[in-house]
Design a protein around this nucleic acid. Sequence first.
DNA 1: TTCATTTGACCGGT
DNA 2: ACCGGTCAAATGAA
Length: 285
Amino acid sequence: MECRNLYGDLRKVIEELVRGRESANELKDLLMKSSGAPDLVLVEKILNSFANSIARLSSGRDQSDEVSQNLRIKPEDSGDSIKSSVKKDGRGCYKRRKYSESWSTETPTLSDDGYAWRKYGQKDILKAKHPRSYFRCTHKPDQGCQATKQVQKIEDDPPKYRITYYGHHTCSNLLKSSQLMLDSTSQEDSILLNFETGASPVPTFAATAAVIKPESPFIPSLSSVKREYKDDVQSEHTHHQSSSTTTSDYLVSPDITSGGGMMGLPDYGDVFSGVVDDVLHQFEF
DNA sequence: TTCATTTGACCGGT
DNA sequence: ACCGGTCAAATGAA
């Protein structure tokens, strides 16, 4: 079907965005090294845009994939029943989840994808130099969000991480419903909201970003920013945690009532809007 | 005290 | 039996 072609196109777009993000990260590193770096904020904006776009597209793709594959996905299998067989006093009695939907990316840094994750495991993988870390959505307990992801360092010297996402987010990230300042049916869905964290505490810290999801749009703010990664997530586990430095992933909790004064990025939205518009037009989100 | 991470154990799929 | 994914007690941080 032609949907297949669309998914293939979307994958390519996402891959291109990932490459763009990597390039932006490299540029950022260069700027950091060259003392002055007055344009770092701009780079952060670019990184934001990539993060937003990737998260946005991958989210849409997951949904599309689910739609196309839901005949193979038994909702009761991918849902809370994962624990249905757990013994109250035992451990490890569970049903292994079977995702037919997944998507992975490789990146030199672990930048924000717009979602909050909680680590629930780490494993040494055969023939892999670095352990693989397992994350699930922070909102699984309260909202039953089944999204998970795996992060594994696959290269050392130019560090490279493979991030694999499974499932899609059903959480609304603490959305307070009330004021949806954006109409997902208008102005296409390519609107990406970006805001700055102010001074990022660490060089590789990508500024906060959020994604307007078509099924549950929201306006995020920085009322709460939470760090999820420690630097031993992707390196060996002998590190102390005192100043998590290399990576971050954090929660953006929406606080719509604050009025949106932080959205002072007038021309930023235009940076990639043309490209994203093209993609979104194809998908008619 | 609460919440997140670490880490060894356990289980399912192959 | 092995390997990878998940659980949950222990531990650490705020």
